Amino acid sequence: MSASRIPDIEAFEERAAIAEYDGGLTRLQAESLAAQEQGFASGGAYWRWLAEYVSKRGLG
């Protein structure tokens, strides 16, 4: 994931919810799928990137 591109949080949450509830995936699996669609290796990588971004920008 390019550091200059901010992930689409709404799309991530929507995709994960659909995959979890309609697709029968666990939340972890659903977040991983949603994160991969945005170019991340996993849901954990997505959340780490987002936390670092917020921390560096002083938004937290």
Rank of each mutant, 00 (worst) to 15 (best):
I6M: 06
A41L: 04
G43H: 01
R57F: 05
A35D: 04
L25I: 03
A35P: 02
E20G: 01
A45T: 00
D22W: 03
I6G: 07
E20Y: 00
S55I: 00
Q29I: 13
Y46C: 04
S4V: 10
Q36G: 07
S42N: 02
D8R: 13
G58Y: 09
A34P: 04
R57K: 14
E52I: 11
L25T: 00
A11K: 09
V54M: 15
M1R: 10
A11H: 09
F40S: 04
R57I: 01
A51V: 09
R15H: 09
E14M: 08
L59P: 04
R48Y: 13
Q38D: 13
R5I: 14
Y21R: 15
W49K: 15
A19N: 02
A41F: 04
A30E: 02
Q29F: 05
A41W: 05
A34V: 02
L28S: 14
G39Q: 11
W47K: 14
E52L: 14
G60S: 02
G60Y: 00
P7V: 01
R48W: 12
T26Q: 06
G60T: 01
D22R: 13
S55Q: 15
G23M: 02
W49G: 05
W47F: 13
R57S: 15
K56L: 13
I18H: 03
E37R: 07
E20C: 05
E13Q: 14
Q36V: 11
D8S: 08
R5S: 06
A17V: 03
M1K: 14
A17D: 07
G23H: 08
F40G: 06
G60C: 00
F40H: 08
E31C: 13
I9K: 12
E13Y: 11
S2C: 11
Q29W: 03
L50F: 11
R27A: 12
G23N: 06
D8G: 01
D22V: 02
E10G: 04
R27N: 07
E14H: 07
G39C: 13
I18Y: 03
E37C: 02
I9T: 11
D8E: 08
S32K: 05
S55V: 01
W49R: 15
L59F: 07
A16E: 03
Q38K: 00
E37V: 02
F12T: 00
S32P: 05
A45N: 07
S42R: 01
Q38I: 05
E20P: 00
E31K: 14
I18C: 03
P7A: 09
S4T: 10
T26H: 08
L59S: 08
G39T: 07
I18M: 03
A45Y: 08
D8L: 07
R27P: 01
K56T: 06
G58F: 04
A45Q: 13
S42A: 10
T26R: 05
